[in-house]
Design a protein around this nucleic acid. Sequence first.
DNA 1: ATTCATTTAAACTATTTAGTTAGTATGGAA
DNA 2: TTCCATACTAACTAAATAGTTTAAATGAAT
Lengths: 208, 208
Amino acid sequence: MELQELNATEQKILSAAKDVFVEKGFDGARMQEIANKAGINKALMHYYFRSKDNLFNAIFKEAFYQFIPKLGENFKSDKPLMVKIEQFVVDYIELIKAKPHIPLFVLHELTRNQDFEEKMLIDNDNIPVNDWMESVIKAIEREEIIPVDPKHLLVNMVSMCVFPFIGQPILNVLIFNNDRSAFNDFVEERKVHIVEFIRNSITTKPKS
Amino acid sequence: MELQELNATEQKILSAAKDVFVEKGFDGARMQEIANKAGINKALMHYYFRSKDNLFNAIFKEAFYQFIPKLGENFKSDKPLMVKIEQFVVDYIELIKAKPHIPLFVLHELTRNQDFEEKMLIDNDNIPVNDWMESVIKAIEREEIIPVDPKHLLVNMVSMCVFPFIGQPILNVLIFNNDRSAFNDFVEERKVHIVEFIRNSITTKPKS
DNA sequence: ATTCATTTAAACTATTTAGTTAGTATGGAA
DNA sequence: TTCCATACTAACTAAATAGTTTAAATGAAT
């Protein structure tokens, strides 16, 4: 896929494909539905994208890289760890709020399609996990935080941000009695809550 | 579905159906594959379960209730909150370890099939979230823990237990360089880590 | 004006797939 | 033995679906 050669029709197809694939998954998506949503003929889709697989790969890579590299953007900065964590939590929740169905979609398709490694080519430059590790180790050395395994800390942070969206249908019933706005409020609260929860757990200074 | 009228053939079908549905999802599952895996003729499946939907509902309810009610088993006990949390984390991680693909499967199918409420009939007796809330409030009153929103605490705990399994394909690449046993070790560590992480965050006594 | 890429419409093909049918064992009851 | 329900199978049907083909319209560039 070239980068900026996309004309309006290609854009319409990609946009419709993304909607349908994300909502239904690869197996549940129908080429006819994508064509209808794009307002074009089915044959025209095959004119631009030869096959369903092709079209899927085009939108999947986009969806994937929308969520993964942004992860590491602030990992490289040299700010205090808690500042980085706060920025990460707020930014990441905002990112997911804008496209709440992408994480479950991506994870489902990755699980379905085990050979994604060849497709996705995640290189360590894209997601600087190592930079995160070093930040945490430095923060421990500086005694900003107590000793903690950087991997677990990373997974904790990401889990608490992402999981509520993936588990939303269950949370809506179990916790929010199907009150949609209650869920939205809850997500907003989490921007503050998660940061405080982590801060209380790992900072050396006891809370005032 | 009756409870204990299941003969060996029905069992074989249900077991095969569960494997295939969980691996491929409803849309990706093929009745022929289920029949093959069960070692029977496809017509025999329609003899016992009239349709794909029927068969799916049979295994989905089972999968669903395998994970949800167990959640609340210890919520009703009157032990100190941190003891309950420790029990929950260890039990729940063990539960998911035994069936690591169920959570993603359930959440994907719930998202795909918005009208699950009618199907699933989650009553508050099954999942005593209210009992959890009260436990937390009591623990705050007893000054075992600092003031914390019980809902966020519950979601934090569940998130940190479940998400690593849902996100395993990504974690494997990003953090574990596709070392399968590294992931397993990590999960074992989490039984201790998550409890300590929560304890450090919410208990009133500063860590020794 | 001619050429060429883009677009549409419609009918078609090949394949996959859920579900059906019609009939065959099997084994116990009458 | 005969009857009959349960368990089971091979072959079939009907519908859906990805993808193709053909022919024609449009419109911008040469």
